[in-house]
Amino acid sequence: MTELSSTTDSNADRKELLKFNGVGKWYGNFCALWDINLTVHKGERVVVCGPSGSGKSTMIRCVNLLESYEAGEILIDGSPIKNDPKSMQVIRRRVGMVFQNFNLFPHVTVLQNLMLGPIRNLKVSKKEAEETAMHYLEKVRIAEQAKKYPSQLSGGQQQRVAIARSLCMHPEAMLFDEPTSALDPEMISGVLDIMVELAEGGMTMMVVTHEMGFAKQVADTMVFMDHGEIVEVAPPAEFFTKPKSDRTELFLSQILQH
């Protein structure tokens, strides 16, 4: 077991928020995740990259228990995340998630999409939920679309709504599962801008993405995965210029060549 410490110097004095301890996951005999050890500090931005099928999405989906895992544990603030219904609700409130396909609720308006979580999980009043929702819709620059239905919005706008929906729960950390992969090229920058702003605001983030420009701009830590394991963890300056692993180098040369 190799301990791959993600610490850059600035992380030394930061609190550990999320910690993967030897997490492993299998589909039957197929090993989807193997011995994942990773620490994410408060305010740290971790970008996860790797070839498709390497387990990046599976790894971050383990955090809020959208995936179960058979080995190891994940700690939040030092205490293990349990998978009974009550703790699941708590962890999902503390850690927000943005999906590749937005997954907005098509049968209600944008505003109602944002209000549902706070009303049901945080038990806030309708009025308060609406104020919070409008606040975050303004933040993602989409407030004027509040009364529309998701299908009336472009992909980029939908993804910004999805980010706002997560933010309404006041999460301590955000997981992004390839947030720009399903977008038309001209929509991508709008979403990335919002994510950069979030990062600058000090949000703890784990981002699975192929947007290496974004990674260079905001990442504190780069994680490279292949075949269900973490191959390399390094600060971006080191990661992009002198990767330690051949596999990382090969992957980077493949996605950065154009």
Binding site: V90, N101, N103, F105, N121, A162, S166, C168, M169
Partner: peptide, 21 residues
């Protein structure tokens, strides 16, 4: 499946996932 996941990801209980989403 995405609808289930999105609803669970904002912390809805199984009852509310079914009822609201």
């Amino acid at each position: 499946k995405g609808q289930w996941e999105a609803a669970r990801a904002i912390g809805l209980s199984r009852y509310h996932v079914l009822r609201d989403v």
